[in-house]
Design a protein around this nucleic acid. Structure first.
Lengths: 259, 259
DNA sequence: AAGTGGTCTAGACCACGTA
DNA sequence: ACGTGGTCTAGACCACTTT
């Protein structure tokens, strides 16, 4: 194999050739060798670089396409994707509330995919407690970013969000004035921190609102509250976000697609 | 190409060879040529039957594996899957309630995957209203099966379910005494009606319990209630189930994985 | 030992996008 | 015209499962 600048991965033994190549490409992508949106080298170039047949390269690329890390475009090339930056497919945070009359299920596409306006209430570095640090695979006493956000729909405060991010990785967010933050977190994580959200686990539960929360949502104290607990993971399975989202239970709608 | 007993599909023009083969295999599977659980012919056999190279057959099979219709097992063969018969991956109806102490999110695997006991309250043929008939792609006035089910966990009634099924397809269920029904609907649909649930859309909302519902769940009237609306689809995208699940909002937990 | 899928090769031609 | 990915071929050898 000709020398190549790609970072070598740990696991190489007992792995198929295309698996090794997929891993090396993934490492290169994560290392920023090919930033999101850019194209990786052509199949033929990779084949000669790795010293394998074209088919083997295709198989390696297929793995990363399957993972959602790459995207193939005929006639143009193979591109690094931006992850779930635009919003999560499958379960939509866009359809959190019934803005419109009762939808009929199938009408997912017809509903306005309204993105709630985001108001950053606070964003500060905090010491993570033990369980939160463990979630991010950080040691005890590690620090993180604690973000408090309120989301508005048509001049009504609808959602209250508490977000925790691991701090070594997300430090770049601190340098951005909260006024300049976009409406969505994931594109910011992707652009400023090089973090790509690849998978998430949501859990929906129900409980009364606490006093402070109720006030910020203009609801009476102990009003029924829907709580969505989300953990987001990057391509390597590392937890990169812990989020609590709260809102009026009776104006709440959570959609999920299972396949 | 040698003559083959496989049902010919409509779309053949402008489709890749492996796409055509995938379609023909799918038609054969849906037509019951290879029932769920059985193996389809070996790659080499298919290659000679269709008159293509092995790689083309592999590509066709890969499409159906991706769709979740087939499963490859090295050294044994390629098998027709039973769909989502055992319960849905991704979003789990098994973890609907907090049977145990607060889980820590990641601990999905450690939680007991307890299947609630199912009690069929009623199962009868009804005339579907316009929107329900449209869901099943049936004409106005079409009939369906309306099932009322209560689910128990450890001697407590926890869930109330109203299920609608399209009737021409699910008629076989009527012949089975409700006492002999299993705890899960999808395996029954698969075994008795040849219907495979492949994808589902859940929607979670909250509202007060209605009087009759509250009584059946041993809860006070107007108690907060979690409502999951599910539409299940077969491999062809046809809606094959509409289900409403209701339960105590305070004992509710809905988990979904997004990728 | 025989049969299955898993991996890999070294080519070929086609369809698409861009210059 | 050229480079890209999309499709396809006709083999090869390996790993796994069953007989």
């Amino acid at each position: 194999m000709p020398d190549n600048p790609i970072v070598q991965s740990a696991a190489a033994a007992g792995m198929s050739r295309y698996g090794q190549i997929a891993r090396q490409l993934q490492d290169g992508i994560l290392a920023g060798e090919w930033p999101p949106g850019s194209a990786i080298p052509a199949e033929s170039a990779l084949a000669s670089r790795f010293g394998t047949a074209l088919g083997t390269i295709r198989q390696a690329i297929a793995v990363l396409v399957q993972q959602g890390l790459l995207e193939r475009v005929q006639g143009k090339g193979t591109f690094v994707r931006n992850g779930l930056s635009g919003g999560l497919p499958g379960a939509s945070m866009m359809r959190f509330f019934r803005f419109r009359a009762e939808s009929d299920g199938e009408a997912t596409a017809t509903a306005t995919p309204m993105v709630p306006r985001s108001e950053i209430l606070s964003c500060r570095s905090v010491r993570l407690d033990k369980t939160m640090a463990a979630r991010f695979a950080l040691g005890t006493g590690a620090r993180g970013l604690a973000i408090s956000r309120r989301r508005w729909v048509a001049d009504h405060p609808r959602l209250l969000e508490s977000i925790w991010l691991p701090l070594p990785g997300c430090a770049a967010l601190q340098d951005i004035p909260t006024a300049e933050w976009g409406e969505l977190l994931y594109p910011m994580l992707s652009q400023h921190c090089g973090i790509t959200v690849h998978r998430a686990m949501d859990e929906v539960t129900f409980r009364p609102l606490e006093a402070g929360e109720a006030e910020q949502l203009a609801l009476p104290a102990s009003h029924p509250c829907a709580l969505v607990t989300r953990q987001a993971f990057d391509i390597q399975g590392q937890c990169v976000e812990y989020r609590l989202t709260r809102g009026d239970a009776y104006a709440f709608r959570y959609a999920a697609e299972i396949r």
